[in-house]
Each structure stands twice: as C-alpha cells, then as structure tokens.
Design a protein around this nucleic acid. Structure first.
Lengths: 100, 100
DNA sequence: GACTCAAGTGAGCCATTGGCTTATATTAAG
DNA sequence: CTTAATATAAGCCAATGGCTCACTTGAGTC
C-alpha cells in the first residue's frame, strides 16, 4: 500500500466514524497490510498442500498468496495471524473440538 | 451449493489426491458451506459495526454476508467458525497479546 | 551423472467476491 | 411523533479466489 493510499484510508475511516458506522471508542483492531504466509507455514513445518488442507484453504489460493500474485483479503489476513499465534486453537475448532 | 456441485467437488478432490496435491491421509478439515454470521455476531452481543471493527472485517462485507448477497469465502468461513468457538483467543491475538 | 518424484514457481483465464455508494426500512429512546 | 442508531436492499467496479498448463528446484537413489 502506497503512502497516498494510506492517507485515503485514514480519511475514509474518519468519514466512517463521523457517520457512526465505526464506533470511535472501539478497540479497532489492527490487521497487518502484509502477511508472510510462507514463513507462517514453514514455522508449522507443513507443505503448501498440508497447510491448505489443515486450515481449510484452497491450495491454489495459498500459492497465489505465497507467490505475491494475490494479497489475502483482510479477513484472511486476520485468520492467518490467528493461525500464526494460536495454531492449536484453530485446529481444535476446525476439528470440532471446542475450546475456551 | 447444489447436489450436482457437491459431486463435482468430490471428483475434483479425488483428482487432486491422485495428483498428490492433497495428502490423502491428512486430517482434511471440514469447512461448513454456510455460516450464519448474524447469529455468531448476536451471540457476542455486538452490532455489525463493532463486530467488524473487532475482528478486522469491512462493515460492508459483513453486511453482504448477513444479507445473503455474498457468501464468505472458505478462508473467511473458517475464520468465522474460529471466532464463534474461540472469540477470546481471536481477540487476544489481534490485540497482540499472544496466547497458547 | 541421469532419473525420479515431491514441492514449489510463474503466467493466464473467468466467475465471484470485497468494498463502496445511495436509498430505504426498522427499532428504541426522548 | 421525531430522532438517532441499526440494519436491509440494490447496484457498481476492481481485485481476488480458484483453476489450468508449463516449468524449475531439491532430495533421494540407481
């Protein structure tokens, strides 16, 4: 994301807050612009195929991300961050074993 | 997803396994076809705006999902399931407070 | 070295989604 | 009843998801 884009983002956010579409006080979560998917995957010691199968992703989409051809959307970036920091929780949830 | 589509999905999976693109033994995670986003959100007692802001989603995308206009992609569906079953873990991760 | 086989890279294609706008409805509070 | 907050609804465009085909890289192993 360029500097100009970032400024535009901030302006959009300001407008959204003014409109009341975003609660100003809220713990507005920060989602990183870029996520190093390959490094998250390698940290777990998985191949592309296994990683994709384990977390419900399409192998081809994962490849698009790792090769920088596509950038994962915000929801996917947040998900990847959760996978990075709490992989076992994610596995348990997807396996149907509720935690928390 | 129609019944026909489901059969095609299975055939694609079979082909992918045959090609070695998907490890056959692997715990292939099951991601639900449909996720009731509104009910997950209400269970947490959040408005659309707060829910979106809390989990790094675009308010408009969330609305598209809840109104059935768009279907969240597999990665987003998996993410929503994790939010449903382990919301506090997700919050902690996105807040930068590592768990696990 | 030559020969696999598995894992990953890279480019191209099309349908669908994400993100956004505008307008309208519903609900709760004063 | 009026207002403000919250949600529904429909339409638009650029970007992504999912897929195919072709090619490279790396670890064995013969």
């Amino acid at each position: 994301m360029s500097n100009g884009s970032r400024i535009i983002e901030s302006m959009k956010e300001a407008v959204a807050i003014a409109r009341g579409e975003i609660p100003a006080e809220s713990y507005n979560v920060h989602i990183p612009e870029r996520v190093d998917v390959a490094s998250i995957r390698r940290q777990l010691g998985l191949t592309q195929a296994s990683f994709a199968a384990s977390f419900g992703l399409s192998l081809y989409t994962l490849r698009n991300w790792e090769q920088g051809k596509r950038q994962p959307e915000p929801a996917a970036r947040a998900y990847l961050k959760v996978i990075e920091k709490a992989p076992e929780t994610v596995r348990s949830v997807l396996a149907g074993i509720a935690t928390e």
